[in-house]
Structure formats: C-alpha cells, structure tokens
Design a protein around this nucleic acid. Structure first.
Length: 427
RNA sequence: GCGGUCGUGGCGAAGUGGUUAACGCACCGGAUUGUGGCUCCGGCACACGUGGGUUCGAUCCCCACCGGUCGCCCCA
C-alpha cells in the first residue's frame, strides 16, 4: 500500500501556493475596503451545530458530513460549510451586543463534504465567505452581493452570471409551501423518489429537481414570487433597486432555492458561463438567514452571507486564461566552489546576505561550478556571487549580473551594500 | 451511492504472451583545467496500480479490488 492523500483531497504545491496567496490577498484587500473583518472558527464543531444550523433534511447533513466521535464520546463534525459555525460563534461570543452592528465578518478555510469527487468538487474544499449579521436592510443584501461580484471582477473574470431570487419571509414561505404541496400532491406517484420525500420534508426543493424538470406539473408550479407578501415583495424590490443602482446585472430565477434550510428572503448564486468549466458551474452561493441566530439561542438577529469556492475560483481564472502575476526571480545565488574552507565561507556569506534582507540561495547538491550556474539560471537568479579559493585568498568575490553577463570584483567587506545597490538598479 | 474512462521511470509517451521494456523532457557529467541560457556526446532513473486466475511463461488475456479522471444526485 502506498501512502496517498485521501480521496478528494489534494496537496497544493509551491508552484500553486503562490496563486492561492495572490487570490487571497486580492480578496482580503476587497474585504478591507468593504470593512469586513476576519473571523476564524474551529475546523470542527459539535455535530448539532450543523444539524440544527444547516438543517436535518439537507443533503449536507444527511449524507455528506464527516462525523466522528472523540475519545470523550462527543459527536463532532468537520465543518461542511461556514455559516452555521460563524452563527454559533456570533451567539457564543455575544457579538449581538456589539454597538457596531451589523457585524461584518469574513473567513477563509477548508470545508469537508463526503462526496464523490469530480471536476470542481473536492472532499476537502477551500472557501472564502462573508457574513453580515444584525441588519435587515436590503442595502446590506446588495452590499454582500456586490462584494462577491467585486472579487470576481477584480480578478478579471468576465463570463459570470448572477442569479437572484427571494424566498420570502416565514409567512410567505408557508403560503407558498402549502400551495406547492397542493399543486404536486396529485402527481405524487409520477415524481421521482427524491421528490416524493421532498414533498413532505421540503417541497421547495422539488422545484430544482433535475430529474423531474420536464414534468408538466413543473411548469405550472406556483412560483414563490407570487406568494411573497407585501413586506417580502418590497424587500426584494429594494434589493434589486440597489443592485440596479450599482449597475450589477442579474437574472431573477424563481426556481433558485438553495439547498440549505436556513435561507429566507434574498437568495443568490454566481455561476461561470465560461466554456470548459465542467458540469459544475456554481462559483458562489448565499442568501439571507434571519432565523439562524435564534436557532443557536441568540436574540432575533437577521443575517446574510455567502460562501465562495476557491478551487472553483482558481479554475475559472484558468479557464478564462487569466494570468496570475507571480514573482519567481531570485535576488542572489552564491556559487561556492573549491576547498572546505570555501564551503564554510559560503555558508557565512549566504547568512550575511540573508540577514541583510537579501533573498539568497546557494547549492546544496555538490554541483560543479557549471552545474551551479545552471541551477542559478533555473532559479532566475538576478545575480550570482562567485566564491572560490582565488577569491578567498584575495578577499574578493566576483558578482555576475545574469541578465547581461557583466561581472565585477568586489571586496568581501562590501558585498552586502554592493548587492543592495545592484538590486536597486535592477528594479 | 451509481455510470463512463484510464492506471508503464520525476513528467510525457511507445510497446510485446517469452532473453537487458523504446523514445522524448527533466536531471547529472563531458566537450569548454573556475562561469548559465544554444549545440553535440555520455550517464542516471526504485516503471508496467494491487491481488488473484489462465498459461510452460504475463506488463500484455480474464476477474476482483484500489486509485485518478469525467459525469449522475447535490452543491462551493
């Protein structure tokens, strides 16, 4: 048996971590502009957090959680999504008492879902997410959507589609739910087995079933939009008006339901329309969850947020051929060759350069001088410092500028300042 | 959980029921006694996913499993 990373997980190697870091940096800058602050919650929680937060009837809870018992017999679960945990933290730390509501939070982190991996789907996935808790202003809904779109736009993505919908408030949802059951019940036997149980547990989900998509009853199904009460209607209109004001284009899809139980009012999803993106197109999804905080024992507090898949974001960048600027040049390579005395001197010199803040590397493979030059070339070294027995005798080193091949001798005492100066000229 | 497809050195990629399993890239060395990127030459390489079966013999044929990948369900 060979040791391999578990199915659905992956190593992100140095050649790629630079891309991740770039993307994360861009996102953080945007969060800073929108004045959201980072929260870090545990990577696992008591299982109930997700059962109650996400909802018992959801796919996530029913078949996708990594749940285990710890040595103390507690049932714990690797977080499958971010919102429930942030809501738990919000209540536990009594952030609802903050004078600065809404509490505007963002997070980065790994989420875990036991699913069959495919393009754009991993068992350990990385998400960025945002939660704004404590405000029921349509403007914050629009802000959160804007923030998500801003990220994609800043990174240069073009083929995007924003879909929004309103699920209404409790009253609207109940009216719609009753209407749905009444509508589909006569056809119960004709629907797929999933939908038959959905009809009882969560009739809303019947609407986004792909198997029964073509069933005649689907087309005539009551739309949530027709059941929004006045307040819900007005709220949705206002959100759209704010999006219009920001010139963010969107499509209203009455069938956009979102899989999690906690959503109400605004729901949205951002998808990629780029060719070659694979079967899964959702880049980010989110919505309003006004009952979630009370579910965790907090005061009645509204909230809205979204989760964004970072693997999918990276994939979208690749599919749209967007280059990520990565600086791979090495400032300085020390090529030491000769006696053991030189080796010691090389170690010392490399240390000095690094201590002075100069990015420096050297050879550890016992390469010949020519091999060291090749290595320096591979590393895209700007300068190579030669240190051999001759140099040691004369207390000099030779500095070579790789771009031009120019070189000059410098006294060992002045190497650091000399290199610093040369690097300054380079940039 | 179900289905398609794939599984040969670090990477890419030929190939065969039977003596040392091509080749390319990469890497190391030499041509150039202490100087990279080009060229030529040489070298290195823990490779046929795992376990069974058929066979005198299997990397090749059969089966199972494992893994990758793509898709279904659903989602980030």
């Amino acid at each position: 048996m060979s040791m391999k990373a578990p199915r659905g997980t992956m190593d992100i190697l140095p050649e790629n971590t630079a891309k991740w870091q770039y993307v994360e940096k861009q996102i953080k800058e945007i969060c800073d502009a929108y004045y959201y602050h980072e929260i870090r919650t545990p990577i696992f929680e008591h299982t109930e957090v997700f059962q109650r937060g996400v909802g018992d009837s959801t796919d996530i809870v029913q078949k996708e959680m990594y749940t285990f018992e710890d040595r103390g017999g507690r049932s714990l679960t690797l977080r499958p999504e971010g919102t429930a945990a942030v809501a738990r933290a919000f209540v536990e730390n009594k952030l609802y008492g903050s004078p600065n509501l809404p509490e505007k939070l963002y997070y980065f982190g790994s989420m875990f879902r036991y699913e069959r991996p495919q393009k754009g789907r991993m068992r350990q996935l990385n998400q960025f997410g945002v939660e704004a808790m404590g405000s029921e202003d349509p403007a914050i809904d629009a802000e959160v959507i804007d923030l998500a779109m801003q990220i994609y736009r800043r990174l240069g993505l073009k083929s995007l589609k924003l879909v929004i919908n309103s699920l209404g408030d409790k009253e609207s949802r109940k009216a719609h739910r009753d209407a749905l059951v009444a509508h589909f019940d006569p056809y119960r036997e004709e629907l797929c087995s999933d939908c038959q149980s959905r009809l009882d547990k969560n009739p809303l989900r019947v609407l986004d079933c792909k198997k029964d998509r073509d069933h005649p009853a689907m087309k005539t199904a009551p739309s949530i939009l027709d059941y929004l009460n006045e307040k819900s209607q007005a709220y949705f209109e206002q959100v759209k008006a704010y999006l219009d004001a920001m010139e963010i284009s969107y499509t209203v899809d009455p069938n956009l339901v979102r899989g999690l139980d906690y959503y109400n009012h605004t729901a949205f999803e951002i998808m990629s329309e780029a060719d070659g993106f694979g079967a899964i197109t959702t880049l980010a999804g989110g919505g309003r969850y006004d009952g979630l905080i009370t579910e965790f024992g907090g005061p009645d507090t509204p909230g809205i947020g979204f989760g964004m898949g970072l693997e999918r974001l990276l994939m979208a960048l690749q599919v749209e051929n967007i280059d990520i600027p990565v600086d791979t040049k090495l400032d300085c390579f020390v090529a030491g060759f000769g006696s053991e005395k030189v080796r010691t001197e090389t170690v010392k010199l490399v240390h000095q350069l690094r201590s002075a803040g100069i990015q420096t590397d050297t050879d550890y493979q016992h390469r010949k001088m020519k091999g060291q030059l090749k290595a320096a070339d591979r590393l895209k070294a700007k300068f190579v410092i030669f240190l051999g027995d001759d140099e040691l005798d004369k207390q000099l080193v030779t500095i070579k500028k790789m771009g031009t091949g120019d070189q000059k001798e410098v006294s060992v005492d002045h190497i650091v300042s000399e290199i610093k100066e040369l690097l300054l000229e380079e940039s």
